[in-house]
Write a protein that binds this DNA or RNA. Structure first.
Lengths: 140, 140
DNA sequence: CTCTGTGCAAAGCGTTTGCAAACGA
DNA sequence: TCGTTTGCAAACGCTTTGCACAGAG
């Protein structure tokens, strides 16, 4: 709670009820689309406007508080910015799970960037497939 | 040329002027947005409709001829489907470059999926940063 | 000849914008 | 109090849809 107040303050954003609860929900769900966020927060703050969610997402991505996770064939999800990691994305249920970022991959990506004189900024490694649950129940 | 005729046929799609030239342009540019494609093809086929481009993109992605490359903060680009590889995406000029997919990465991703009982389907590894050209000229 | 694909125009939606009121610091 | 943020409603722009005609096989 207080965590997000200072996170916002450090990013030069005022801490409002809307922003704090957007961050809390994103933190607890891990990855959420705009609509997911709106639906969650509007429950505890019925006058919330979707436009407010959009404005804040744009602002918090700009400030580096949130990171967009673009997903093939679907709408982007958003997560709290953190160290590089790998996303396991279920193509059936849409769930996104984090896996710690293997050191070897980091090394390979870094040296690859050097070879190309590419000034590396951010890595996004997405593995698409079926989570164990969806794989077990193919007809849903 | 004939290449795309058979690629389309094998995918169960009729080979039309529009589709062949969409594929030719995507092949020669590597990665294109919907608008890029439309602008290129409309030059040699002025009556082309943007709706046709949309319809064909959807169809060809479904059939596996094309692959969508979703990019943080931008519109998706499309490429001819091919073996897994890595994208170097310039956050300044938007250029996308392919790098061969390192065997080690493949191994790591595969074993990681196994650990999680995740049935791996497709990998998308995107490295965001600045290409050497944009890095040299920061004020554009 | 038949079925698929195209082009046009309209409809649909997700996203953005402008502005007055509410709010945080 | 002052600058920022919110909520609403309208505007926007990308994408999809329906339909009649054209084209591929």
């Amino acid at each position: 709670m207080t965590k997000y107040v200072s996170l916002l303050k450090n990013s030069g954003l005022k801490s409002t009820f809307q922003r704090i609860h957007m961050l809390e929900n994103i933190a607890s769900c891990g990855h959420m689309s705009i609509d997911d966020i709106y639906e969650k927060v509007v429950k505890i703050h019925p006058s919330l406007s979707l436009a407010t969610v959009y404005k804040n997402i744009i602002l918090m991505v700009e400030k580096g508080v949130l990171t967009e996770v673009p997903i093939t064939g679907k709408k982007s999800k958003y997560e709290l910015s953190k160290e590089d990691h790998i996303h396991l994305i279920c193509i059936a249920c849409g769930k996104v799970e984090d896996k710690p970022h293997n050191l070897h991959i980091n090394t390979i990506c870094t040296s690859m960037s050097k070879e190309e004189n590419f000034v590396l900024n951010k890595q996004q490694i997405n593995l698409y497939g079926k989570c164990i649950t969806c794989h077990a129940t193919p007809n849903v």
